[in-house]
């Protein structure tokens, strides 16, 4: 019953997106929606490791940027189309997630967090010094001449992002409610106890980091086609990493719906503030919201809502 309801909603949202491209002509809305969807995928990906498993990744921007630069490099060298580039970015970033996880997840959790910070700077240095993808000067991407049946290029990119975001939600939901998800929750609550109870903790943690890395790469792969110009400073922007942490933390980390709610809420607020007030203020606001939510409502919006709902039920 619940499963079918979920898929009905997913299909409804996708059809809604297709209808939107037929009805709305103003390109700004698709740009704004693209940004929000991209942040949603990043938040969902971060939450698979952070919320389900309890390990903090500070290097989200690095996975995102490596996804974007995988696109640039393969598009430039082989001229691959976007769907193949997305798959390639998923593989590359998944392997990076696996590698970093394998090196550090056998140690204490904080080392993983610090290693991801380190990884972000190492990759930024590598790409800044890699002349083939533009180095510090950045790289341009030529947009395709035709855009299927859509009225404009941005609409096509938006629909691609919508499909990816819905896929990410489905993966996250599947992980959350499956056997793997219960194992991950056991690791988050008490890793030693989980290990003693026979949960294969290292293997589950590695699955978790690999999926996280792959999804972040997927979020980054279409980015060069969206902005058409990418340089290391914008691709490795700290703001991407902060958003990826803040959105699940604000939405609620334990449930798969948490990062989605957080991303839609924070993302929409950001768009409104950026347009109406200023983008600097919007960045500051995210930081303040993050700190306030962590200290005052660590369970996030989903947690607050559940608490309220349970109290009313009594």
């Amino acid at each position: 019953m619940k499963i079918s309801a979920f898929w009905v909603v997913v299909v409804a949202i996708f059809v809604g997106g297709l209808v939107l491209t037929e009805v709305v002509d103003n390109e700004y809305y698709f740009t704004a929606l693209y940004v929000i969807l991209q942040a949603t995928i990043m938040a969902i990906a971060w939450n698979i490791l952070g919320g389900f498993t309890g390990y903090v990744n500070f290097g989200s921007a690095a996975f995102f940027a490596v996804g974007a630069y995988t696109s640039i490099a393969l598009n430039k060298s082989l001229g691959l189309p976007l769907p193949l580039l997305i798959a390639a970015a998923a593989i590359v970033c998944g392997l990076i997630g696996l590698g970093v996880g394998y090196l550090t997840l056998r140690l204490k959790g904080v080392y993983f967090a610090i290693a991801t910070l380190a990884m972000a700077i190492v990759f930024e240095t590598l790409i800044t010094n890699w002349a083939y993808v533009g180095g510090a000067r950045g790289a341009y991407i030529l947009t395709p001449e035709t855009f299927l049946w859509f009225k404009s290029y941005i609409q096509m990119v938006f629909i691609v992002m919508l499909m990816l975001a819905l896929t990410a939600v489905a993966i996250s939901r599947m992980l959350n409610s499956s056997r793997i998800g219960r194992g991950l929750a056991a690791i988050r609550d008490d890793e030693v106890a989980a290990e003693c109870a026979g949960v294969p903790t290292l293997r589950l943690k590695l699955i978790s980091t690999t999926v996280m890395g792959a999804l972040m790469g997927v979020a980054g792969a279409p980015y060069p086609f969206f902005v058409t110009f990418v340089d290391p400073v914008s691709a490795f922007n700290l703001f991407i990493a902060v958003n990826a942490i803040a959105m699940p933390m604000i939405g609620g980390t334990a449930h798969w719906l948490g990062p989605v709610i957080g991303a839609l809420l924070v993302g929409t607020t950001q768009e409104i503030i950026t347009v109406n007030v200023s983008s600097e203020l919007n960045i500051l606001l995210v930081g303040i919201m993050l700190v306030l939510f962590i200290t005052l409502a660590p369970q996030g919006i989903v947690g607050l809502w559940l608490k309220y709902w349970r109290r009313r039920k009594k």
């Binding site: 309890g54 903090v56 967090a113 942490i245 960045i283 500051l284 303040i288 993050l290 962590i294």
Partner: peptide
């Protein structure tokens, strides 16, 4: 907020990350 409730591993890390970010943005502003 964190040490007493045993949440320092996830929330505590994110807290300091947020503080770092706020300091940087305020200085830029």
């Amino acid at each position: 907020a964190f040490e007493r409730t045993g949440q320092e591993s996830l929330s505590g890390l994110a807290f300091f990350f947020g503080v770092m970010f706020i300091i940087e943005v305020v200085l830029i502003l």
